[in-house]
Write a protein that binds this DNA or RNA. Sequence first.
DNA 1: GTTCCGCATGAATCGATAG
DNA 2: ACTATCGATTCATGCGGAA
Lengths: 280, 280
Amino acid sequence: MKEIRSDIYLGDCLEILSDFPENTFDLIITSPPYADSRSSTYGGIKPDKYVEWFLLRSQQMLRVLKPDGTFVLNIKEKAVNGERHTYVIELILEMRKQGWLWTEEFIWHKKNCFPGKWPNRFRDAWERCLQFNKEKKFNMYQEAVMVPMGDWAKTRLKRLSVTDKIRDNSKVGSGFGKNVSNWLNRDKAYPTNVLRLATECNNRKHSAVFPEALPEWFIKLFTKEYDLVLDPFVGSGTTCHVAQQMRRNSVGIDTLREFYDLAKQNVTQVQFEIFEEWAK
Amino acid sequence: MKEIRSDIYLGDCLEILSDFPENTFDLIITSPPYADSRSSTYGGIKPDKYVEWFLLRSQQMLRVLKPDGTFVLNIKEKAVNGERHTYVIELILEMRKQGWLWTEEFIWHKKNCFPGKWPNRFRDAWERCLQFNKEKKFNMYQEAVMVPMGDWAKTRLKRLSVTDKIRDNSKVGSGFGKNVSNWLNRDKAYPTNVLRLATECNNRKHSAVFPEALPEWFIKLFTKEYDLVLDPFVGSGTTCHVAQQMRRNSVGIDTLREFYDLAKQNVTQVQFEIFEEWAK
DNA sequence: GTTCCGCATGAATCGATAG
DNA sequence: ACTATCGATTCATGCGGAA
């Protein structure tokens, strides 16, 4: 039986990551401190300084990510002075200059967004999950995150429509049998780039929102078992906790001692012991 | 009794708008031809030329928009060479330099997005609805888009299929969709900045780029009756059609004669019917 | 008059092939 | 090398006709 390692570091990821060799991680997923938010804990990075601050760290992430790995950045700009601040979209442009490929932007549609009312805007119910890659070819395990299919298959598959026959006849070779047969026993469809976290809705018994659902979905999608996941702003350790449950090795970094302690608490004792061995 | 006017112009909005005085419109809402899409009809603008092309026109829009008016831009970047193209986020930055305030970004979550499967990405199920303003203070009628509770909700709920009830996990948030079950115990709810709508792809006569519910929602939110709405890329006339039904005056512009004819047809007819009904 | 079901069709994207 | 065209893939929706 293989070991699952979960390693929590205390410190700035800028420095911690410099000790890691290049091409180490299969997935980097993180929700960094947003500009000027959590200022009481992180000391607050001013929105205007955010891009500069982040680029130093994304440089290291680019180095330690495997060529076929993926970086998922969960982030949302805050409203400053009545406007949405531009540091996030500036960051995308700068990261591309740094060498990242901006492959996709997923939307996390938040189930329970913060309540409130403002004269000039509504509640903010979504966040960006920006997907960056080093190369055009990267590991993606789409089948791992398939969702239940809609009604159409049940009716459509009873009898092929004319359209289906025509479209299928246009294919080269063996007629329409091949593709339709793919549908015959399929009850699942591929998801979209909007995360409703609908996969959890299959279990209607649990209506509670799991904050772990976000890293869980991306870990499923971009890694396989025993791969190595990094969260450079791990906070209370959610990413490592989820990674461990999914049998992925993980590294979590945070600058705050209280988060460091909390994260180590949240990982199992076994993990901790493994970490001790590894530290030697 | 007031008159509702809907004027359709044939031509490039860059030139047509130059004949309008400044501070004319209460709301500009449009879905311009996306880069390289609909090239067969619009000729297509190359992604790399898109920002430059659009800025000339947004300059005019800035001029003709009232100081307390709003500009809603429905747009989405396409995938080019395995990456999301950056012309949209570049456009945001450039429009701010032009004098626009980037107030908010709404998400249109498309329930029925285009099917397909690719090795490196999922189906694209969302588009941006970027809100720009000239001034920090602008007209916003939040109560107009609150979701009322009434018989309509009950009948709507009754018509839901079992599958819909199970699968549709949409929030109260959007104010759209079928999640009326959440409304049962409340009178009204404020929406969020995520709109969950289906595209209307099956209308043979005119394939509108966005469903009527989209401009309808923003027209409700940012204008009152008898205000003046502009759509500089009006296409088949959806915006003017909706505006008219909601008793807003409107101006629609498009470069294509077939759209011009189609829009005049749609708008005129509705205008007449509305008038007759209203006259009673 | 409901409900059900067949049906066409989308702001799509990628990879291969052709010019 | 670089662009243009084409085939393959895939799923939710509402209309219209049928039950």
